[in-house]
Amino acid sequence: MNLINLLSSKKSAILKRWFDEIVSTYPDATSSFLKTQDDPFANPVGQTILHGIDGLFDELLKDTDSNEMPSFLDNIIRIRAVQGFTPSQSTAFTIFLKKVIREELKDEIKEDQLYNDLAALEARIDKMALLSFDIYMKCRETLYEIKANEVKNMTFNLLRRANMLSEVQEE
């Protein structure tokens, strides 16, 4: 069996482990909640992570470069970017997958000598990790822009009245 087929057949076990790794970055009381409530509106963080990694996993197994990976990553990182994590803490979940796969498929990889396949997959995971840094930065920039815009909106009419806002006039 090649690695991709193997991963597909073990998808649910791998996702469960990956998910557990990610939620264990939260305090205990929180991680047990994130794991148990499966209503996406009652548990937006847990369910967004779960759906996000599901999508990411499928994307990683495709052999073409994927367009959807950024949006799955964005969903998760956008949350972690405002949860008091450092940049590396916000994005390290991507790399957790390496360890999860190595542990989950330890025997099969050895038996079938899948090291080349594994190296290729890990290179893709590295790419995903790099992409996640870009997304993290974008989220933080958005946050700063929002702060600045809000001040402007709050006093919009006052500034307009005081002729402190000007637009380029058409000749």
């Binding site: 790399i95 957790f96 360890k99």
Partner: peptide, 11 residues
């Protein structure tokens, strides 16, 4: 390790 990195401070 990455999984440690992510746990530092927050846990």
């Amino acid at each position: 390790k990455p999984e440690e990195l992510s746990k530092i401070d927050h846990k």
